[in-house]
Design a binder for these strands. Structure first.
Lengths: 142, 142
DNA sequence: TAATACATTATATTTATTCTAAACTGTTGA
DNA sequence: TCAACAGTTTAGAATAAATATAATGTATTA
Protein backbone atom coordinates (compact mmCIF):
# COMPACT_ATOMS: atom_id res chain seq x y z
CA UNK A 1 0.00 0.00 0.00
CA UNK A 2 2.99 2.26 0.39
CA UNK A 3 3.25 2.52 -3.33
CA UNK A 4 -0.39 3.35 -3.89
CA UNK A 5 0.21 7.01 -3.19
CA UNK A 6 2.77 7.25 -5.96
CA UNK A 7 0.24 5.80 -8.32
CA UNK A 8 -2.53 8.09 -7.11
CA UNK A 9 -0.20 11.00 -7.61
CA UNK A 10 0.69 9.91 -11.15
CA UNK A 11 -2.97 9.48 -11.97
CA UNK A 12 -4.00 12.86 -10.59
CA UNK A 13 -1.19 14.57 -12.43
CA UNK A 14 -2.47 12.91 -15.59
CA UNK A 15 -5.91 14.34 -14.92
CA UNK A 16 -7.36 10.99 -13.96
CA UNK A 17 -9.23 9.92 -10.87
CA UNK A 18 -7.55 7.11 -9.00
CA UNK A 19 -9.80 4.13 -9.46
CA UNK A 20 -9.19 0.47 -8.66
CA UNK A 21 -8.62 -0.30 -12.32
CA UNK A 22 -6.20 2.51 -12.92
CA UNK A 23 -4.20 1.77 -9.81
CA UNK A 24 -3.91 -1.81 -10.98
CA UNK A 25 -2.59 -0.60 -14.33
CA UNK A 26 -0.06 1.56 -12.49
CA UNK A 27 1.09 -1.39 -10.43
CA UNK A 28 1.84 -3.35 -13.53
CA UNK A 29 3.58 -0.47 -15.26
CA UNK A 30 5.45 1.23 -12.46
CA UNK A 31 6.08 -1.15 -9.57
CA UNK A 32 9.54 -2.11 -10.73
CA UNK A 33 12.80 -0.36 -11.46
CA UNK A 34 13.03 -2.30 -14.66
CA UNK A 35 11.61 -0.63 -17.69
CA UNK A 36 9.91 -2.62 -20.39
CA UNK A 37 8.14 -2.54 -23.72
CA UNK A 38 4.59 -3.68 -24.19
CA UNK A 39 1.60 -3.75 -26.46
CA UNK A 40 -1.92 -3.16 -25.15
CA UNK A 41 -2.67 -6.84 -25.61
CA UNK A 42 0.33 -7.84 -23.52
CA UNK A 43 -0.57 -5.33 -20.82
CA UNK A 44 -4.08 -6.72 -20.60
CA UNK A 45 -2.67 -10.23 -20.30
CA UNK A 46 -0.33 -9.26 -17.46
CA UNK A 47 -3.18 -7.59 -15.61
CA UNK A 48 -5.37 -10.65 -16.03
CA UNK A 49 -2.66 -12.89 -14.62
CA UNK A 50 -2.07 -10.73 -11.57
CA UNK A 51 -5.37 -9.22 -10.65
CA UNK A 52 -8.62 -10.34 -9.26
CA UNK A 53 -10.20 -7.20 -10.63
CA UNK A 54 -11.27 -6.91 -14.22
CA UNK A 55 -10.12 -4.11 -16.46
CA UNK A 56 -11.72 -3.51 -19.81
CA UNK A 57 -9.79 -2.77 -22.97
CA UNK A 58 -11.24 0.72 -23.18
CA UNK A 59 -9.93 1.60 -19.74
CA UNK A 60 -6.48 0.32 -20.59
CA UNK A 61 -6.39 2.36 -23.78
CA UNK A 62 -7.63 5.49 -22.06
CA UNK A 63 -5.17 5.21 -19.21
CA UNK A 64 -2.18 4.43 -21.41
CA UNK A 65 -2.98 7.40 -23.61
CA UNK A 66 -3.33 9.73 -20.65
CA UNK A 67 0.07 8.59 -19.40
CA UNK A 68 1.64 9.15 -22.80
CA UNK A 69 0.20 12.65 -22.94
CA UNK A 70 1.66 13.34 -19.52
CA UNK A 71 5.01 11.77 -20.38
CA UNK A 72 4.84 8.75 -18.06
CA UNK A 73 4.94 6.42 -21.05
CA UNK A 74 6.36 6.70 -24.55
CA UNK A 75 5.07 5.35 -27.80
CA UNK A 76 7.76 3.71 -29.88
CA UNK A 77 7.69 4.73 -33.53
CA UNK A 78 7.46 1.47 -35.40
CA UNK A 79 5.34 0.51 -38.31
CA UNK A 80 3.81 -2.55 -36.81
CA UNK A 81 0.27 -3.81 -36.71
CA UNK A 82 0.09 -2.99 -33.02
CA UNK A 83 1.44 0.00 -31.14
CA UNK A 84 4.41 -0.56 -28.89
CA UNK A 85 4.83 1.40 -25.69
CA UNK A 86 7.77 1.90 -23.37
CA UNK A 87 7.90 2.54 -19.65
CA UNK A 88 11.38 3.95 -20.17
CA UNK A 89 10.74 7.61 -20.82
CA UNK A 90 14.34 8.69 -20.62
CA UNK A 91 16.06 9.59 -23.83
CA UNK A 92 17.11 6.39 -25.54
CA UNK A 93 16.80 4.45 -28.74
CA UNK A 94 15.85 1.04 -30.07
CA UNK A 95 16.88 -1.92 -32.08
CA UNK A 96 13.99 -3.67 -33.74
CA UNK A 97 14.51 -7.28 -34.64
CA UNK A 98 12.07 -7.87 -37.45
CA UNK A 99 12.69 -11.59 -37.52
CA UNK A 100 11.75 -12.08 -33.90
CA UNK A 101 9.49 -9.05 -33.50
CA UNK A 102 11.56 -7.95 -30.57
CA UNK A 103 12.51 -4.51 -29.32
CA UNK A 104 15.82 -3.89 -27.59
CA UNK A 105 16.83 -0.69 -25.81
CA UNK A 106 19.89 1.25 -26.85
CA UNK A 107 21.11 3.44 -24.05
CA UNK A 108 21.55 7.08 -24.87
CA UNK A 109 25.27 6.77 -24.20
CA UNK A 110 25.57 4.15 -26.92
CA UNK A 111 24.49 6.61 -29.59
CA UNK A 112 26.21 9.90 -30.24
CA UNK A 113 23.88 12.86 -29.78
CA UNK A 114 21.80 13.12 -32.93
CA UNK A 115 22.38 16.58 -34.26
CA UNK A 116 19.91 17.71 -36.90
CA UNK A 117 21.01 20.74 -38.88
CA UNK A 118 17.76 21.27 -40.72
CA UNK A 119 15.01 23.32 -39.08
CA UNK A 120 11.37 23.93 -39.92
CA UNK A 121 10.10 27.51 -39.47
CA UNK A 122 7.68 27.83 -36.55
CA UNK A 123 8.45 24.35 -35.32
CA UNK A 124 10.71 22.97 -32.67
CA UNK A 125 11.92 19.44 -32.12
CA UNK A 126 10.00 17.62 -29.43
CA UNK A 127 11.81 14.30 -29.53
CA UNK A 128 14.36 12.41 -31.55
CA UNK A 129 14.28 8.65 -31.87
CA UNK A 130 16.62 6.29 -33.60
CA UNK A 131 15.31 2.95 -34.82
CA UNK A 132 17.92 0.48 -36.02
CA UNK A 133 16.51 -2.57 -37.73
CA UNK A 134 18.57 -5.68 -37.20
CA UNK A 135 18.64 -9.02 -38.98
CA UNK A 136 20.54 -12.26 -38.60
CA UNK A 137 24.17 -11.99 -39.49
CA UNK A 138 24.90 -15.14 -41.44
CA UNK A 139 28.40 -14.05 -42.30
CA UNK A 140 27.38 -14.81 -45.89
CA UNK A 141 27.78 -11.25 -47.12
CA UNK A 142 31.17 -10.22 -45.83
CA UNK B 1 6.12 4.26 -73.73
CA UNK B 2 9.84 4.78 -73.40
CA UNK B 3 9.49 4.46 -69.68
CA UNK B 4 7.49 1.27 -69.74
CA UNK B 5 10.61 -0.86 -70.06
CA UNK B 6 12.05 0.55 -66.88
CA UNK B 7 8.87 -0.38 -65.10
CA UNK B 8 8.79 -3.85 -66.62
CA UNK B 9 12.36 -4.31 -65.50
CA UNK B 10 11.57 -3.18 -61.96
CA UNK B 11 8.60 -5.52 -61.84
CA UNK B 12 10.52 -8.52 -63.13
CA UNK B 13 13.33 -7.89 -60.68
CA UNK B 14 10.71 -7.84 -57.93
CA UNK B 15 9.49 -11.21 -59.09
CA UNK B 16 6.29 -9.82 -60.52
CA UNK B 17 4.81 -10.15 -63.98
CA UNK B 18 4.32 -6.84 -65.70
CA UNK B 19 0.61 -6.36 -65.89
CA UNK B 20 -1.40 -3.27 -66.82
CA UNK B 21 -2.22 -2.59 -63.20
CA UNK B 22 1.32 -2.90 -61.96
CA UNK B 23 2.72 -0.75 -64.73
CA UNK B 24 0.20 1.89 -63.79
CA UNK B 25 1.34 1.74 -60.18
CA UNK B 26 4.95 2.12 -61.37
CA UNK B 27 4.02 5.17 -63.41
CA UNK B 28 2.61 6.86 -60.37
CA UNK B 29 5.51 5.91 -58.14
CA UNK B 30 8.51 6.21 -60.42
CA UNK B 31 7.77 8.56 -63.31
CA UNK B 32 9.28 11.58 -61.62
CA UNK B 33 12.62 12.57 -60.18
CA UNK B 34 10.82 13.88 -57.15
CA UNK B 35 10.48 11.48 -54.28
CA UNK B 36 7.41 11.51 -52.10
CA UNK B 37 5.66 9.96 -49.14
CA UNK B 38 2.35 8.24 -49.42
CA UNK B 39 -0.18 6.02 -47.76
CA UNK B 40 -1.96 3.23 -49.63
CA UNK B 41 -5.14 5.29 -49.58
CA UNK B 42 -3.39 8.24 -51.18
CA UNK B 43 -1.75 6.04 -53.80
CA UNK B 44 -5.11 4.59 -54.77
CA UNK B 45 -6.54 8.09 -55.06
CA UNK B 46 -3.73 9.25 -57.34
CA UNK B 47 -4.18 6.21 -59.55
CA UNK B 48 -7.91 6.81 -59.76
CA UNK B 49 -7.36 10.39 -60.83
CA UNK B 50 -4.89 9.50 -63.56
CA UNK B 51 -5.96 6.17 -64.94
CA UNK B 52 -8.72 4.76 -67.00
CA UNK B 53 -7.84 1.32 -65.69
CA UNK B 54 -9.02 0.12 -62.33
CA UNK B 55 -6.65 -1.18 -59.70
CA UNK B 56 -7.95 -2.96 -56.66
CA UNK B 57 -6.69 -2.37 -53.15
CA UNK B 58 -5.30 -5.90 -52.93
CA UNK B 59 -3.15 -5.35 -56.02
CA UNK B 60 -1.82 -2.10 -54.65
CA UNK B 61 -0.90 -3.72 -51.34
CA UNK B 62 0.76 -6.68 -53.04
CA UNK B 63 2.77 -4.56 -55.42
CA UNK B 64 3.89 -2.08 -52.78
CA UNK B 65 5.03 -4.92 -50.54
CA UNK B 66 6.97 -6.58 -53.34
CA UNK B 67 8.73 -3.28 -54.04
CA UNK B 68 9.59 -2.84 -50.37
CA UNK B 69 11.04 -6.33 -50.25
CA UNK B 70 13.13 -5.53 -53.30
CA UNK B 71 14.17 -2.14 -51.98
CA UNK B 72 12.35 0.07 -54.47
CA UNK B 73 10.25 1.55 -51.70
CA UNK B 74 10.78 2.09 -48.00
CA UNK B 75 8.36 1.88 -45.14
CA UNK B 76 8.67 4.77 -42.73
CA UNK B 77 8.68 3.69 -39.09
CA UNK B 78 5.89 5.67 -37.54
CA UNK B 79 3.25 4.61 -35.13
CA UNK B 80 0.32 5.84 -37.10
CA UNK B 81 -3.00 4.29 -37.94
CA UNK B 82 -1.87 3.89 -41.54
CA UNK B 83 1.49 2.89 -42.92
CA UNK B 84 3.55 5.54 -44.62
CA UNK B 85 5.79 4.68 -47.54
CA UNK B 86 8.59 6.56 -49.22
CA UNK B 87 9.81 6.49 -52.81
CA UNK B 88 13.09 7.89 -51.58
CA UNK B 89 15.11 4.80 -50.77
CA UNK B 90 18.36 6.59 -50.20
CA UNK B 91 19.60 6.90 -46.68
CA UNK B 92 17.78 9.79 -45.06
CA UNK B 93 15.62 10.69 -42.10
CA UNK B 94 12.32 12.35 -41.23
CA UNK B 95 10.61 15.01 -39.27
CA UNK B 96 7.09 14.06 -38.30
CA UNK B 97 4.76 16.93 -37.59
CA UNK B 98 2.16 15.42 -35.31
CA UNK B 99 -0.05 18.47 -35.41
CA UNK B 100 -0.38 18.45 -39.17
CA UNK B 101 0.27 14.75 -39.75
CA UNK B 102 3.00 15.65 -42.15
CA UNK B 103 6.29 13.98 -42.97
CA UNK B 104 9.32 16.00 -44.01
CA UNK B 105 12.57 14.58 -45.34
CA UNK B 106 15.84 15.27 -43.62
CA UNK B 107 18.73 14.78 -45.97
CA UNK B 108 21.43 12.46 -44.80
CA UNK B 109 23.91 15.33 -44.80
CA UNK B 110 21.78 17.19 -42.28
CA UNK B 111 22.26 14.48 -39.68
CA UNK B 112 25.64 13.32 -38.50
CA UNK B 113 26.23 9.64 -39.15
CA UNK B 114 24.42 7.74 -36.40
CA UNK B 115 27.02 5.61 -34.73
CA UNK B 116 25.63 2.87 -32.51
CA UNK B 117 28.17 1.36 -30.13
CA UNK B 118 25.95 -1.45 -28.88
CA UNK B 119 25.79 -4.71 -30.81
CA UNK B 120 23.56 -7.75 -30.58
CA UNK B 121 25.26 -11.14 -30.97
CA UNK B 122 24.36 -12.87 -34.22
CA UNK B 123 22.67 -9.78 -35.58
CA UNK B 124 23.75 -7.02 -37.89
CA UNK B 125 22.21 -3.63 -38.50
CA UNK B 126 20.10 -3.50 -41.63
CA UNK B 127 19.00 0.13 -41.47
CA UNK B 128 19.05 3.12 -39.18
CA UNK B 129 16.29 5.70 -39.18
CA UNK B 130 15.92 8.89 -37.24
CA UNK B 131 12.45 10.23 -36.53
CA UNK B 132 12.29 13.72 -35.06
CA UNK B 133 8.88 14.75 -33.84
CA UNK B 134 8.20 18.44 -34.21
CA UNK B 135 5.57 20.71 -32.69
CA UNK B 136 4.67 24.38 -32.95
CA UNK B 137 7.21 26.64 -31.35
CA UNK B 138 5.12 29.18 -29.49
CA UNK B 139 8.14 30.78 -27.88
CA UNK B 140 6.23 30.24 -24.63
CA UNK B 141 8.75 27.89 -23.09
CA UNK B 142 12.07 29.60 -23.63
C1' DT C 1 -24.54 11.86 2.27
C1' DA C 2 -26.71 13.56 -1.85
C1' DA C 3 -25.66 15.43 -6.14
C1' DT C 4 -22.57 15.62 -9.73
C1' DA C 5 -18.99 14.73 -12.68
C1' DC C 6 -16.17 11.43 -14.12
C1' DA C 7 -15.22 6.09 -15.01
C1' DT C 8 -16.03 1.52 -16.44
C1' DT C 9 -17.80 -1.77 -19.21
C1' DA C 10 -19.77 -4.59 -22.93
C1' DT C 11 -20.77 -3.95 -27.19
C1' DA C 12 -20.84 -1.81 -31.57
C1' DT C 13 -18.24 0.71 -34.92
C1' DT C 14 -14.50 2.09 -37.66
C1' DT C 15 -10.65 1.43 -40.43
C1' DA C 16 -6.34 -0.56 -42.23
C1' DT C 17 -4.85 -4.62 -43.84
C1' DT C 18 -5.02 -9.43 -45.25
C1' DC C 19 -7.40 -13.39 -47.10
C1' DT C 20 -10.25 -15.97 -50.43
C1' DA C 21 -11.82 -17.97 -54.38
C1' DA C 22 -13.48 -17.31 -58.86
C1' DA C 23 -12.51 -15.18 -63.20
C1' DC C 24 -8.73 -13.50 -65.96
C1' DT C 25 -4.05 -12.87 -68.26
C1' DG C 26 0.89 -13.32 -69.20
C1' DT C 27 4.11 -16.91 -70.32
C1' DT C 28 6.00 -21.02 -72.11
C1' DG C 29 6.83 -24.67 -75.12
C1' DA C 30 5.17 -27.67 -78.67
C1' DT D 1 0.23 -19.82 -82.91
C1' DC D 2 -2.13 -21.65 -79.27
C1' DA D 3 -3.13 -24.62 -75.43
C1' DA D 4 -2.00 -25.27 -70.82
C1' DC D 5 -0.29 -23.53 -66.76
C1' DA D 6 1.16 -20.54 -63.39
C1' DG D 7 0.60 -16.34 -61.72
C1' DT D 8 -2.77 -12.11 -61.24
C1' DT D 9 -6.82 -9.38 -60.37
C1' DT D 10 -10.80 -8.47 -58.13
C1' DA D 11 -14.89 -7.94 -55.09
C1' DG D 12 -16.06 -9.03 -51.10
C1' DA D 13 -15.32 -11.33 -46.70
C1' DA D 14 -12.42 -11.79 -42.70
C1' DT D 15 -9.33 -10.06 -39.20
C1' DA D 16 -7.74 -7.20 -35.76
C1' DA D 17 -6.41 -2.82 -33.54
C1' DA D 18 -8.31 1.12 -31.94
C1' DT D 19 -12.15 4.20 -30.91
C1' DA D 20 -16.97 5.43 -29.86
C1' DT D 21 -21.32 4.70 -27.36
C1' DA D 22 -24.44 4.72 -23.81
C1' DA D 23 -25.99 2.52 -19.73
C1' DT D 24 -24.40 1.55 -15.16
C1' DG D 25 -21.22 2.41 -11.45
C1' DT D 26 -18.00 5.19 -8.42
C1' DA D 27 -15.05 9.01 -6.65
C1' DT D 28 -15.53 13.64 -5.29
C1' DT D 29 -17.58 17.78 -3.36
C1' DA D 30 -19.96 20.62 -0.53
Amino acid sequence: MAYAEQYIDKLRKSGLRPTKQRIKICKVLFNTDKTFHFTIKELVKIIENQANIKVSLATVYNTVHAFIKKGYLKEIPLNASQSYYDTNVTHHHHFFDEEENRLIDIHQDDVDEVNIKKTIPGKKIKSVEVIAKIVSDNQSQK
